[in-house]
Amino acid sequence: MEHKNKFLRNLFIILVFIFLYLPIAVLVIYSFNKAKTNIVFTGFTTKWYTELFKNRDLLEAFINTIIIAVTSTVTSTVIGTTAAVGLYKYKFLGKNFVNKLLYIPIIIPEIVLGIALLSVYTLMNLNLGMFTLILSHIAFSIPFVITSVRSTLSDTTKKIEEAAEDLGASKFKVFKEITLPLIRPGVISGATLAFTLSMDDVVISYFTAGPGSNTLPLKIYSMIKTGITPDVNALTSLMLLTVIIILTISIIYQSRKIRKKVVA
């Protein structure tokens, strides 16, 4: 009875993973398809992995996406981290209000933030393009960084900081040498989250992009409507491979750290 139960439980877990990986498996398989459409599988080829580098539009969109993701991640991590520390440390008029505002981008539907930003850019007569895209990505990333950093701040960090300040260290020095190392996990996870959100954002980019600032998600969106070519599948497979490699390295790195600790 117990044995059968365990089997059923594992089966459920496996089924969930099949559900999660099925569409991705399909995409990877079709990246080796000879035909130009994803309709029928006509034969094996690897040509799309080279074709991919000839598709200038797709590559341009990919590069734009990387530029936007890197710029917005760096900016929002810097602003978000210092802000989380500042908001934790200081009291000021309207602090409560600012804190409330910061939750809004996390909870409201993305589409609302998207159209609201578009309206304001139009009001300010800004040219829609890379600049507005980066600005929008910063806008939705900062609250996630702040929440993530905030979760690593605690009374202990506060006490250590105060002790250091009492010993005469400047606020900047305290921030750099004491606070930052303590909150590092929060900063890293906040930055990772910001980067991931930016790389994959469809909704907000859809409203705030302009001519010459196509991103990969937007390009793929328009291609889904007119027909996806297998070079997109190839690009996705490569991106997936990169993600898996990075994750594996980070897991190995972490487990080594744990082992070192154990040895020490």
């Binding site: 569409p23 991705i24 995409l27 790389m199 994959d200 469809v202 990969l216 998600p217 793929i220 969106y221 889904i224 996806i228 997109v232 599948n233 996705t236 991106m239 997936l240 993600v243």
Partner: peptide, 8 residues
Amino acid sequence: TNSLIRTY
């Protein structure tokens, strides 16, 4: 990975 391509 890209959410649109997964939807596709």
